[in-house]
Simulated scan of single mutants.
Amino acid sequence: MKRVAILISGGGSNMVALVKSMTGDHPARPVLVASNDPAAGGLRTAADMGVATAAVDHRLFKGDRAAFEAALLEPILQSRPDILCLAGFMRVLTPSFVERFEGRMLNIHPSLLPKYPGLHTHQRAIDAGDAEAGCTVHEVTAILDNGPILGQATVPVLPTDTAETLSARVLAEEHKLYPACLRAFASR
């Protein structure tokens, strides 16, 4: 059975989808949900779902990413994860942190990579006149949103779409895609 730690920064809807999926014959189980924000709503949700939680407030480190990551590593390493899933974790991780989990760290990104790495993906797709948008699950590498793609899901971009309406439809697909990709990845 693979052990999965999940990193979040907010409400954790993708984390919830992952945790709910890891039951029955699933080859993995959640062992930790950690956040860079002690007030992240997803921490309470994870605790209510019976998953251990930890929070390391990045603001206390005043831009010292190495010190923040060292503190974040403590609860992660204590949970002994086989797989680390980023699920709305809004901090860019340093290459040394990423290398520690190379080949076993996943992320969900709200665009059809390699299009639109980074932020504001839905508005960028609308502004470009794209016919479709979507989401990507990929392995995390030291280059932002650039690792091997494990799966994608698409939705049409409608003429009436705003970034908010497109985001909501993409998020619904994220909640299906990420659990499916985690199951396949954990089954390797």
Rank of each mutant, 00 (worst) to 15 (best):
R188L: 09
M1D: 12
D37L: 07
G24P: 04
A87V: 08
T121M: 12
D48V: 12
R169A: 07
S13V: 02
G63I: 14
T23L: 14
S9T: 03
G129Q: 06
M1K: 05
R169D: 05
P81H: 09
I126H: 07
K115H: 13
I8P: 07
V51Q: 03
Y178R: 05
G129I: 03
P95E: 14
L18G: 00
E174N: 10
E174G: 10
T23M: 14
L182S: 07
A46F: 12
V33N: 08
L60Y: 12
E132H: 02
I6D: 00
Y116D: 06
G10P: 01
T162F: 11
K115I: 10
R3Y: 09
A28R: 11
A40E: 11
A133W: 00
E102I: 12
G134I: 02
Q78G: 04
A67T: 10
I8W: 08
L7P: 06
A125Q: 06
H120D: 15
D145C: 12
T165P: 04
F89D: 04
A153R: 03
H58M: 15
S187N: 12
D57F: 11
A87E: 06
R65D: 14
D37G: 05
F61D: 05
A28E: 10
A66F: 10
H120P: 05
A67W: 08
S35L: 12
L18S: 00
